[in-house]
Amino acid sequence: MPLNKAGLESAIKAVLTAEKAKTSGSSIDSLASGLANAIDTFVKTGLVSVNVTTTGSASAQAGTGTGTIS
């Protein structure tokens, strides 16, 4: 699944809105935790595509790979 920037933006807005609505005062720790959770979820939804080039026999291979996250 590709990265969902709109979903991340919505999650960040939700965290900020929730902090703004608190009557007992907002907390840096609470804000940081909410943002960290939103970013963690965003990154974990990324699709990693890798091209690997190998050398060796069927039982002993070595290689390197390059790729992208989308």
Rank of each mutant, 00 (worst) to 15 (best):
A18E: 13
G46D: 05
G67F: 09
G63S: 08
D40Q: 12
G63Q: 05
G65I: 07
N37I: 08
K44E: 09
G65E: 01
S26P: 00
Q61I: 11
L3S: 03
G46F: 04
I69Q: 06
T64M: 04
A62D: 07
D40T: 15
T66A: 14
K20G: 02
T45M: 11
V52P: 00
G7S: 08
I28N: 04
E19R: 09
S27W: 03
L8T: 05
A60E: 06
L35R: 03
N37F: 08
G46E: 00
G65H: 11
T55H: 05
T53R: 14
T17P: 00
A38P: 07
S33T: 15
L35I: 15
L31M: 13
T55P: 00
A32H: 04
A60D: 12
V48N: 05
M1Q: 10
E19Q: 15
T54Q: 11
D29A: 15
A58G: 04
D40I: 08
S33E: 13
Q61C: 02
G34H: 03
S26Q: 06
V52L: 09
L16F: 09
I39V: 15
S49C: 02
T55F: 03
T68M: 02
S27N: 08
L3Q: 08
G25I: 11
S33Q: 14
L31N: 01
L35P: 00
V43R: 11
E9T: 13
G56K: 06
F42D: 00
L3Y: 09
I28F: 12
K5G: 00
A38F: 07
S59L: 13
S24R: 11
S57T: 15
P2Y: 04
T45L: 07
S24I: 09
A14H: 02
A60H: 09
K44G: 06
T55G: 05
S30G: 08
S10G: 15
